[in-house]
Structures are given as C-alpha cells and as structure tokens.
C-alpha cells in the first residue's frame, strides 16, 4: 500500500491533484490510498506527501503558519518523498515579493519575484501576466522523475510570481527551466523533494508521468 497525504491547509482546490494521483496509482496497478488532510499524524504516517498551494502567498503563509505546516513539511522532507506544487513550491522559498513582501518557509534559499507589468519576450512582444497556459520545460539536470518525459515537454502553468533562474541556481537545485520574458525555475529538487511551479495534475501525459514516477521514487536525486 502506497499512502499519499495531500496537505490540506484550506487553500484551494485539492481535488484535481487527488484525482490525478488516484489515476496514476491505478495505472501502476498499485494499491494507492490518497488522504487529503491537515492532520500531522496522518501526514507523518504517509509514504509520500504532496504540498500544494494556490492563491495569494500572504493567505497561504497565514494558514501554513497557523497550522504549523512548515514543521510538518520539514519533517516530511527529512523522512520521505515530497512533491510541492505551484504556490507550494513558492512557500518553500525564503521570501516572496507578493502582497508587499511575505516571509516564506526558507527551506530553499531564494526569492519569489513578480513578473512585472511591462513583461516582454525576446522580440519585444508584450506578455500577459499571469503566465497562464502550456510552456516548455527544459530539463537542465537529470532526475529520476524525468524518466519517460521528453525534454522540452509542455506543462500547464498559472502564476504571476516566479523563482528566478540565475547562474548559481543549478547548485541550489533548479532541475527544470522555463522562459517567459525571464528565465524561471520550473522545477527545484533536493533529496526527498521535487517542487514544480507548474501543475503536473493538469499537464496531461507529461504531468501524469511525473506523478507516476513520484509514486515510485525513493527520494534520491
């Protein structure tokens, strides 16, 4: 039995991710139990953990702090594979520019920045914010979760704030990069942690493959 806990701290729609996990668990012919919960004991008892997040960072961090989700996530990363999604990934960083500046969990060093109101592509074409839709992800580092996912596959993004990709970010664990007016960290990984800015549960085959690999991942880079 593979027990997956999706951490529910009251922010947004966790059903999509739960349904996608059920689907890939069934594809693997695995006995998979998905529990959507804020309960630290249930999360501690799980084999794997999903740390999702949508909406504004201030509201997310308020609930994360109120429910002591930071401690739960830290403990999980010490002991088992964790997949962070979208604002879940941003919450792992040191600080976000959103909502006038919000301290985040600081599990990963780095800032979350705003795309800006005058974002342009290389040719000077105006880019809309949020970055919404299917963008290519360049696999800049090998990783077990990339197995069966062609390089430059498209994943579904929806966000207005991003983690920059810069010279030293590979050392900091950036594993996938996307381009949207800037170079952004699409994936950050560590032992026991795979964090994506995009939504794997909404990214059809490429996303489902990542989740399928996650269900079999031993947490090693």
């Amino acid at each position: 039995m593979n027990k997956i806990a999706v951490i529910d701290y009251g922010m947004g729609n966790l059903h999509s991710v739960a349904k996608a996990l059920e689907h890939v668990g069934a594809q693997l012919g695995q006995q998979t139990e998905i529990v959507v919960t804020p309960d630290p004991q249930l999360i501690a008892a799980a084999d794997r953990v999903i740390f999702p997040g949508v909406g504004a960072i201030r509201d997310c961090m308020a609930e994360i702090n109120r429910l002591d989700v930071g401690r739960i996530v830290r403990q999980a990363i010490e002991t088992k594979p964790v997949f962070a999604i979208c604002v879940g990934m941003q919450a792992l960083m040191s600080r976000s520019e959103e909502n006038g500046g919000v301290d985040c969990l600081g599990i990963i060093d780095g800032q979350v920045r705003y795309f800006g109101d005058a974002l342009k592509d290389d040719t000077g074409q105006r880019l809309k914010v949020p970055h919404m839709g299917w963008n290519e992800v360049e696999q800049c580092t090998a990783h077990p979760l990339w197995k069966g996912v062609p390089d430059r596959s498209r994943f579904y993004f929806v966000h207005s704030y991003y983690v920059p990709h810069d010279e030293d970010s590979i050392e900091r664990g950036v594993t996938g990069i996307a381009h949207y007016g800037k170079e952004i960290a699409a994936v950050i990984s560590r032992p026991n942690l795979f964090a994506t800015q995009f939504h794997p549960e909404k990214s059809q085959e490429a996303g489902l493959t990542l989740l399928r690999n996650f269900l079999q991942w031993d947490g090693k880079g």
Partner: peptide, 8 residues
C-alpha cells in the same frame, strides 16, 4: 520558444 496559444 515560449508559451503556447491555447485551443479550447
């Protein structure tokens, strides 16, 4: 290459 235009 960048963001794709969507068909819905």
């Amino acid at each position: 290459m960048g963001l794709a235009k969507r068909i819905i």
